[in-house]
């Protein structure tokens, strides 16, 4: 007892902040964080640091002519696509989520599994499925031709619209889940109260439902937008020749041409936008909200 007392009195003399840093839980939490710093933060910072000073980097910034045009177009394309996909996802996702909370528990489970099953399946497989369905010789075209509705197969794949369709298809579950979570959290009594105060269906939605579900809308929107900015698979596999996005140019520069500097210049704006959205998201929506702390499925 005496020995431990002596040891402890030296602990007591240390400042509280220092003591809290060395506590067991702090060590546990920081060891995980340290791993992320070493293998996540450092590689990214190192890449930026090293290449910001390189000649390649300077060249890309001052580049003129065709390459510059291509890059700028890719940027416009990427942000435009991300914005359109986000809006489409929000509209379609909201409709589905709203419908999900309005049906009974049994139907809800079945419909929910239609959202969750794709959610757990690899994006490549889903894109593959889309090609099978909508391709030149795909299910939809064959059916329409057989039915005599069209003569020539519709060209759906390998167009800009295919990219929208593919990305919405892949990203929709995020919005459905986030909006569903916030819609479900609304107290049913509120609707009754609103109606008893004389609000009609549309007004209840506008004045009660929509404002209360906004956190889910923001969360879903931000997630979809961030993922869309870095989208590579869908545009590469089913996009048309005009649908070059930043990701593809980055990919070609880094792996085919070995021009890291160019790749990094292109990636820098994405980093800035992502971090900014992350901060906004953290402050106004909250991380827990996005990932839900209850079910497993909602955590993807």
């Amino acid at each position: 007892m005496a020995a431990s007392t002596a040891a402890a009195s030296s602990t007591t003399r240390r400042s509280p902040a220092l003591r809290s840093l060395t506590s067991r839980y702090a060590i546990l939490a920081w060891s995980g964080a340290l791993w992320l710093i070493v293998w996540f933060v450092v590689p990214i910072l190192w890449m930026i640091w090293d290449l910001a000073a390189s000649q390649e980097f300077q060249d890309t910034l001052s580049f003129s002519g065709s390459e510059r045009t291509v890059n700028l177009r890719a940027f416009r394309n990427t942000f435009e696509t991300a914005a359109i996909v986000t809006i489409l996802c929000l509209i379609a996702g909201y409709i589905v989520a709203y419908f999900l909370v309005s049906v009974g528990p049994r139907v809800r489970i079945i419909l929910m599994s239609l959202v969750l099953i794709p959610y757990w399946v690899s994006i490549i497989i889903r894109t593959y499925g889309l090609i099978v369905t909508l391709g030149r010789k795909g299910f939809v075209n064959e059916t329409l031709i057989d039915a005599g509705l069209i003569e020539e197969p519709l060209r759906i794949m390998f167009t800009t619209n295919a990219v929208y369709l593919g990305m919405v298809q892949v990203l929709l579950p995020y919005v459905v889940l986030t909006v569903y979570t916030s819609l479900e959290a609304i107290d049913d009594n509120l609707f009754t109260a609103a109606r008893s105060l004389g609000a009609g269906g549309w007004n209840v939605f506008r004045k009660v439902t929509l404002p209360l579900s906004l956190p889910g809308v923001y969360a879903g929107g931000i997630i979809v937008f961030i993922i869309s900015l870095g989208a590579y698979v869908t545009p590469a596999l089913i996009g048309g020749p005009g649908d070059i996005m930043i990701a593809q140019i980055v990919w070609i520069n880094a792996t085919e041409f070995g021009q890291f500097g160019t790749a990094i210049v292109l990636v820098l704006p994405l980093i800035v936008v992502t971090l900014a959205l992350f901060v906004v998201f953290n402050r106004f929506v909250g991380v827990d909200r996005m990932l839900g702390t209850g079910g497993t499925a909602e955590q993807r």
């Binding site: 007892m1 431990s4 007392t5 040891a7 402890a8 009195s9 602990t11 007591t12």
Partner: peptide
């Protein structure tokens, strides 16, 4: 015996 610096399990 002073106990404030003794861990719970002891």
């Amino acid at each position: 015996e002073p106990i404030t610096s003794v861990p719970i399990h002891k």
